[in-house]
Structure formats: C-alpha cells, structure tokens
Amino acid sequence: MENFLASLFTFQGFAFYLFSFLTIILFWITVMSNNVLYAMTSLASGMVLISGFFFILGADFLGVVQLIVYVGAVMALYSFAMMFFDATREIKEKNTNGAVVFVLGGLSALMLVLMFAAPIHSESIQALYPMHEGVGNAQDVGIVLFTKYLVPFEVAALMLLVAMIAGIILAGKKMDKSLTEMMDEDAGEDEILTQKDEK
C-alpha cells in the first residue's frame, strides 16, 4: 500500500494509474454498452489512451504507431457501424448462451491474473534486445525487425498482400463499369419499388 501511494505521487506513476483506470473503464463501456456510438467511441479513445503507456515507457515510436494504426482501424469499423446500425438508437443484443460467456470470461480473467502476477517475477525477465542509448526508437525497432524477426515480418507482409488481393477481387467485380450508368440500368427496378411503396 505504501509502495502504491509512493508511486502514485510520482509523475510516471500518476500517469500510469490514470491511463490504466481510463482504459479499463472505456473498454468496459465498449463491451457493455448497447449503443453503437458509445461502444465505438470508447473503443477508439481506449486505443488512443493505450498509446499513452508506450509514451510513459519511452517507446515514442510504438506509441505513435499505436495511435496512427488504431485511429485508422477504428475509423474503418465506424464506417461499417454506420452502414449496419442506426447510431442514435440502442441495439437489441442477442444474448448467446451463458456457458460460452462463462468460459470466455473465466479465461480472460485467468489471463489477467497471470499478467498481473508476472511482475512478481520481473527480476528474472530480461530484455533480449535492449534499447541502445543515443539510437532512436525507430532504428531499434527496424534493426530487430530486419534481423531476428525477418521471417515473421515477411510472412505478415505476404498475408497482407493476400488479403489485399482477395479484397480487390471480392469488391471489384464491376469496377470497370460506372456507378451512375449502373444506377440508370437499375432505374426499371426502382419503378417497381416505388409502385410497391404506393400500395
């Protein structure tokens, strides 16, 4: 308890506890909220706050990457939410069976406990690739990425390429046609729809 209070009143400690508290609250809202807008917004702000941890640890580069990547990713998620839901209303959720929720929740809780317990052994944890003094974050990440982790890095690149090609093939069936021309062709069907509406 004294340790906790002592760390709370240092700058880093205070920032850490503030960020942790906010992040946990925000992600809790993400899980529990019935409103798309609340869930998405808390997810986005939680992701932004996580970058704060990287900044506290002095990993500026990773912090900024976290910021840029997740801001973009959640923005894409928003556009799907916009297409599927009415953002200003609450959504009736289909509650899946309790057993799955119980198992998943229990597993996550177990993982949390393990994560919290890990620092007890922190003295036995050593950085295999410690940061170099006087070298920037980006250079350090780059060196490790292109030596030790070259194969996973390239595999990830290949997977992204496959995903991109798949995306283009799925979405690009009528890419050579103009959207407005296609709408003109659909005009006949629209008339049927309006007739139905009138009935």
Binding site: F55, D60, F61, G63, V64, V65, L67, I68, G136, N137, A138
Partner: peptide, 8 residues
C-alpha cells in the same frame, strides 16, 4: 519535443 515529432 518528442523525437518522433512528425509522426505524432
């Protein structure tokens, strides 16, 4: 003055 200023 973060040393990744431009990305930030």
């Amino acid at each position: 003055d973060v040393n990744v200023g431009i990305l930030f």
